[in-house]
């Protein structure tokens, strides 16, 4: 299971990386915005994407839409982990095809639950 973590703050990437390792996912890579992440996804055989929303360059919602529009990547499960908490944003992310939405600040238990739920559903 190869996971890409996208967040513009290294602290948050590190926290997510450590929590994922605790859940048994040790094969993770990091990117600091959508622009860096998209080519990595296109060339890197990733199985799962965890992304923030608000980032300079390319935002998480743009990355989500770009992934869904890419024929080879469109089925990749995507979990959004973000401080963005407007109802309209959550609706937009859902409409764009996000598989899970976690608002910051979050707990290890919530992250675990959402990830397990996603894998349950996608099989």
């Amino acid at each position: 299971m190869k996971i890409l973590i996208v967040d513009d703050f290294s602290t948050m990437r590190r926290i997510i990386k450590n929590l994922l390792r605790d859940l048994g996912f040790t094969n993770t890579s990091e990117a600091d915005d959508g622009q860096t992440a998209l080519p990595m996804l296109q060339n890197g055989n990733f199985d799962f994407l965890v992304t923030d929303w608000n980032m300079p360059g390319m935002t998480g919602i743009e990355l989500l839409k770009a992934v869904r529009a890419d024929a080879r990547l469109k089925d990749m499960p995507i979990l959004m982990v973000t401080a963005e908490a407007k109802r309209d944003q959550i609706v937009e992310a859902a409409q764009a095809g996000v598989n899970g939405y976690v608002v910051k600040p979050f707990t290890a238990a919530v992250l675990k639950e959402k990830i397990e739920k996603i894998f349950e559903r996608v099989g």
Binding site: K86, D88, V102
Partner: peptide, 26 residues
């Protein structure tokens, strides 16, 4: 349409109708 411009962390989530107040709301 949808108002989905990024705003960052919500300081007064409890005072706004258009914002969720936590993971349960999401």
């Amino acid at each position: 349409g949808l108002d989905s411009a990024p705003e960052g962390p919500q300081i007064h989530a409890d005072k706004r109708e258009d914002v969720v107040s936590g993971q349960d709301d999401v």
